[in-house]
């Protein structure tokens, strides 16, 4: 008798878990599909950017001095003045020099001359779909985080639902109904790819919900200032000062990059070898940087 009651309770639990699993699936499947497909395409976003703008200068070793020249040129034509400025030096998967301000991004060539505006609307469309579902930034991030939570919930309820999920982990039945074969396909694919699903859902949920959590902490502790919440983790921005200041030593700041950029080292090594062979006109690297590379490599 206790066994019978236990069996009934267990069957009821399985039914409830299956029902819950399908609720989550029905409610979120279409959005999850959009997120997942755009996520898969986003993995190749650097390659897509390069395809969208094939004319941009690539594989050009840029010296710290040229990077500084590019920065000065970019800031000279920047209107309105920018409060943030980034120089992206070439890497293996994106071998381009990109200078980004608050309002625009431009490419520079090896001599530090600005050659074109960065523009990759299709890649940006895919990235925005993946990050925000094309909703306003904060709302979109929160919705994406919520979908991550729902995916994680689906995974857990999916593991709890079918009683023989492990016993049948290697089984795939073509006998019986087509529905059974489809259920087998669903269960087997879900179980064996769950390590990836769990990590993707969890990290997506954490990233997506961080801004909502920060917003609530800010409302409670910092009078709505979310930057104050992120400051202890990522560091805070200096106080705004409208007085003009001389440009920071970009060449000096960019110099150590040469010794740290592992992928780019190969290009620079080749460049250094070419320099050795030529033993004549100096390359884009000044003597000290070039010799430092030779020591490192």
């Amino acid at each position: 008798m206790p066994g019978q009651i236990e069996g009934k309770a267990s069957r009821k639990f399985v039914e409830r878990a299956l029902s819950g699993h399908s609720s989550l699936g029905l409610a979120t499947a279409a959005f999850l599909y959009l997120l997942i497909v755009s996520g898969i395409i986003s993995v190749l976003n650097h390659e897509l950017q390069r395809w969208e703008q094939p004319g941009a200068p690539e594989l050009v070793p840029i010296s710290p001095q040229a990077a500084e020249r590019a920065a000065i040129s970019t800031l000279a034509i920047q209107q309105p003045p920018t409060s943030h400025f980034f120089i992206q030096l070439p890497t293996d998967d994106l071998p381009r020099v990109v200078l980004t301000t608050d309002t625009r991004a431009v490419f520079a060539d090896g001599s530090g001359t600005i050659v074109a505006e960065e523009s990759h609307p299709w890649t940006q469309f895919v990235l925005d779909l993946h990050y925000y579902l094309h909703l306003p930034e904060k709302i979109g991030l929160t919705v994406v985080g919520m979908l991550g939570v729902m995916l994680l919930g689906s995974l857990i309820s999916g593991f709890l639902a079918p009683p023989s999920i492990f016993r049948d982990a290697f089984a795939f039945r073509f006998s019986g109904s087509a529905r059974l074969a489809q259920a087998d396909l669903h269960n087997r694919l879900s179980v064996w790819t769950s390590p990836l699903h769990i990590s993707i859902a969890l990290t997506g949920a954490i990233l997506g919900l961080a801004s909502m959590t920060a917003f609530t902490i800010a409302t409670l502790d910092h009078a709505g200032n979310t930057e104050a919440v992120f400051a202890p983790v990522f560091g805070e921005e200096p106080e705004k000062n409208d007085e003009a200041a001389p440009l920071a030593g970009i060449a000096r700041a960019a110099d150590p990059y040469a010794s740290r950029a592992s992928g780019y080292c190969d290009q620079l090594r080749d460049h250094a070898r070419t320099e050795d062979k030529r033993a004549a006109s100096p390359g884009p690297w000044d003597t000290s940087a070039s010799s430092r590379f030779r020591r490192i490599l």
């Binding site: 989550l24 709890l160 959590t213």
Partner: peptide, 19 residues
């Protein structure tokens, strides 16, 4: 930041199972 999604997942899973 880590706890919020985990708690939400736990609550959501419980609710969908015990409907």
């Amino acid at each position: 930041f880590f706890l919020a999604p985990l708690l939400w997942t736990a609550i959501a899973t419980w609710i969908v199972i015990d409907n």
